[in-house]
Write a protein that binds this DNA or RNA. Structure first.
Length: 270
DNA sequence: CGTCGAGCCTGAAGGC
DNA sequence: TGCCTTCAGGCTCGAC
């Protein structure tokens, strides 16, 4: 689920619902590893503190509190949402922050997601590469980032190089840019770099506009106030193995690149 | 410098 | 129908 667009949708949703200004009055941790292993230390760190802001950096949700920052990473299956405080806990809700009338709940079936309490978020966030939706994003910047021997797909997935892309949007961006995912980064010519630099923000903006992507059928948890993802219907190659390429009609291929399932058109992604 | 596989977890989907 | 295997949108670590 969560790549940059899905995280952005969560952040916007929480802001629209007025979470800023609410106070963490209590909390419950049902899977200690979700908060770093020491639930007691976590609770004493965040209670009671006012939420002063919620933003995004790469795939991190950045929750600014009075005395520090809560970084939330959704990993493979996490969702963060607001519900009325009286609503019974559902299975897989690993962390609940009590904000008075409302709860901020972390739903994470696979338990890979993490809450990181820190006084210095830059220590973590500064290790991330640039934001592809930042105004400073450009083909020239992209060119400096990918001058390496590694396959372009591996480079795009590496958060230290570019922040926010995951398996879905990487495959989609490479399709738009007509680049084979196994192309070494330093072999990309200027036209390809220009196309890729445009394709990346394009697919991310599209994903955000569609409320993110949801794969499979019922996966995920979307209580009231949370947009239902629908970008899965707009995907061009991802999970479309064997179907015709929307550009040239050749069948979409599925292979493993950089250790990840990869979808691309073997005909028009040269 | 780079690739690969394992581990962290669970539920869904596919094969028989 | 039911069991078993495989796989998954992320990331880190160690081996090579």
């Amino acid at each position: 689920m969560p790549e940059l667009p899905e995280v952005e949708v969560v952040v916007r949703s929480l802001n629209q619902q007025g979470v800023v200004g609410m106070v963490i009055r209590g909390a419950e941790v049902f899977w200690p590893r979700s908060v770093g292993g020491d639930a007691t230390a976590f609770l004493s760190s965040v209670i009671p503190q006012t939420i002063e802001g919620i933003t995004r950096r790469g795939k991190f949700i950045v929750i600014s509190l009075e005395n520090g920052t809560l970084l939330v990473h959704l990993r493979m299956s996490g969702v963060l949402y607001l519900v009325d405080a009286g609503v019974p806990r559902t299975p897989h809700e690993q962390v609940i922050l009590h904000l008075g009338e409302r709860d901020l709940r972390f739903h994470d079936p696979r338990k890979f997601g993490r809450f990181i309490w820190t006084q210095d978020p830059r220590e973590t966030l500064n290790r991330l590469g640039p934001e592809p939706l930042d105004p400073s994003w450009s083909a020239a910047l992209l060119a400096t980032l990918v001058q390496r021997r590694r396959m372009i797909k591996a480079l795009l997935l590496d958060q230290h190089i570019i922040a926010g892309l995951g398996n879905i949007y990487t495959d989609e961006a490479l399709w738009h840019a007509r680049i084979h995912p196994a192309t070494p980064g330093w072999d990309l010519d200027p036209p390809r770099l220009a196309r890729l630099a445009r394709a990346i923000p394009h697919v991310l903006h599209q994903g955000i506009a569609h409320g993110g992507t949801r794969l499979g059928n019922g996966a995920g948890n979307f209580p009231g106030g949370t947009a239902v993802p629908r970008h899965q219907h707009a995907l061009r190659v991802f999970q479309r193995a064997g179907l015709p390429c929307p550009r040239c009609a050749a069948p979409i291929a599925r292979t493993i690149v950089a250790g990840r399932t990869t979808h691309f058109c073997g005909n028009c992604q040269g």
